[in-house]
């Protein structure tokens, strides 16, 4: 097991209201340590994805604070935010919609590094020759043949697309990767391979994950700690090994029982 020390990401009292007044996310606080995977479980409509969108700065939160390491993200102006936000990358639910069908794989894979030219991730230092070499190396890391680099997304399978999305997310060595149901639209056999890939990458690169899913087995497999979300609130939080203990919140037990049946 990796040693877990510094906080990679902290958020305090994050609240997001919709225009109708309904609180989709209600004072959620948590932190993620470096190299840790924090699982977030909840049924559909519990506010998981809205929370993810707030963390990714795709939606403005109404209240709360966010820190990347010790750097505050709330109350940033647009230009500063644009520089900082790449530190939180995402792998989203739909691998097909995450890739622009009209742009070649290489240009999408290299998008983060093309924008942030001054950044060279530590694991790319040895291959810092050319754009093509970096792209090939990234494809190798996620196990997709590099011949696909010059192709369009529709020529790849769903699993391969998700691997490309993962390669894109890790390419810039972010402090945090938000995995928003990354396996929900894949076949069961592919799901396991993607989860293994994510876990291997985390261990070799020391990445921090927020793993969002409604699949308890996947969360249990991936996470060091697990949070349970219901109606926009975090109702329970525990270490991975304590998930099935008797001291859990009633809603957690309910989820487990539904899952086991």
């Amino acid at each position: 097991m990796i040693e877990i020390t510094d906080k990679a990401f902290t958020c305090k009292d994050v609240t997001k209201k919709f225009s109708c007044g309904h609180k989709a996310v209600d004072s959620v606080s948590f932190h993620i340590k470096k190299g840790e995977c924090l699982g977030l479980v909840g049924e559909s409509g519990s506010g998981k994805s809205t929370l993810a969108r707030c963390l990714l700065q795709l939606e403005k939160m109404d209240q709360g604070e966010m820190y990347l390491a010790n750097q505050p993200l709330h109350g940033m102006n647009k230009r500063m935010l644009r520089k900082l936000r790449r530190n939180i990358q995402a792998v989203l639910q739909n691998p097909t919609a995450s890739l622009n069908p009209r742009i070649k794989i290489i240009d999408q894979l290299m998008e983060p590094l093309d924008v942030q030219k001054d950044v060279t991730p530590s694991f790319l230092k040895e291959v810092h020759h050319s754009r093509e070499h970096i792209a090939q190396y990234l494809m190798e890391m996620v196990g997709v043949p590099s011949k696909y680099l010059m192709m369009y997304p529709h020529e790849l399978s769903g699993g391969q697309k998700q691997r490309v999305n993962i390669a894109r997310a890790i390419s810039i060595e972010p402090s945090l990767i938000i995995l928003d149901e990354p396996t929900a639209s894949l076949d069961v056999s592919i799901q396991a391979m993607i989860l293994n890939l994510l876990k291997d990458l985390q261990e070799s690169l020391g990445l921090s994950y927020l793993f969002i899913s409604h699949d308890l087995a996947a969360v249990n497999f991936m996470s060091h700690r697990i949070m349970i979300m219901q109606h926009g609130r975090i109702v329970d939080e525990c270490n991975q090994r304590d998930l099935f203990s008797n001291k859990r919140h009633s809603y957690t037990k309910e989820l487990i029982s539904v899952f086991e049946s």
Binding site: L56, Q57, L58, R82, K83, R85, R86, I88, Q89, A90, L92, Q93, N94, A97, S98, L99, N100, R102, I103, Q108, E111, P112, V115, Q116, N165, R168, I172
Partner: peptide, 26 residues
């Protein structure tokens, strides 16, 4: 509404870049 636009925003592309790189081809 597609996720690749969200990804482009996360990667720090400016609005003009998003329009010219991702929208114009469509």
């Amino acid at each position: 509404q597609k996720e690749y636009i969200a990804v482009a925003k996360i990667n720090g592309l400016s609005s003009i870049k998003i329009l010219s790189k991702h929208m114009i081809p469509h």
